[in-house]
Amino acid sequence: MLWRAVTVLLAVVALAVVLVAVFGDLLVSGDPGRIVAIPYSPPGPGLPLGTDYAGRDVLPRVLAGGRFLVLVPLFATALAAVLGTALGMLGGYLGGVANVLTSRLDTLMLAVPPILVLLVLLNGWGYSTATLIAIVVITGAPFVSRVARASTLQVMQNDYVTQSIALGESRLSTVVREILPNIAHPVLADAGTRLAIAVTLTASAGFLGFGPDAPNWGAMISQNIEGISLTPWGVVVPAVLLAVVTVSANILLDRFAAKAFSR
């Protein structure tokens, strides 16, 4: 009962935060990069959240700083889910060498801290949104693949798959019509966690100084932390919003996906 009330409350808050993140910069009039007062001014008339380290208004930067951190991970996670599922099904369906190879590849990727992969590839490829998406896909897909491979191996034991193969259905048809629907649930049950990790990685990149020129919550936290004792809002507001996005992605989306696809 209490748990359900908390979930509903969290869902409402999460929805509001995601709406602000994606559409917030429509509310901003003028340039969020404009210098309006001395650095680290506390909140006052016309400046509800004070100013940041450069003397810019924090509020429009908060409103504009979430879109990148929601849309890039959403797109990258979807891509990672598709690629990871394809790779996992390939390993599970073909078995033998393909199975060993894909599982070795996954284990290898899972042992390396994603943030290191991020730094190495940023060095190798240079920063761009495409690089960032590629990094999220490369670090996320092995987790999806592992789940998809294990589920495929399990589903392959079922009679309807054996029958489908015995009836002479094409491999593609067997995979798409018999296996895919049955591994969708375990793969999607993990989607929220994957998205939360993708948001964390994207925001961490911004925090380390590798992000778009437009404001983003990750960069705001690192830029304003030195003045946290003068005025905390430039750190606290983006930090709390970011935490709401990742926590709700992890808790709510997993529950939603599990419910929507359970049979």
Binding site: V199, A203, I221, V236, A243, N250
Partner: peptide, 11 residues
């Protein structure tokens, strides 16, 4: 686990 580590550290 869900909160990014630099967010936790800042808080």
């Amino acid at each position: 686990v869900s909160v990014p580590q630099f967010v936790m550290a800042s808080l």
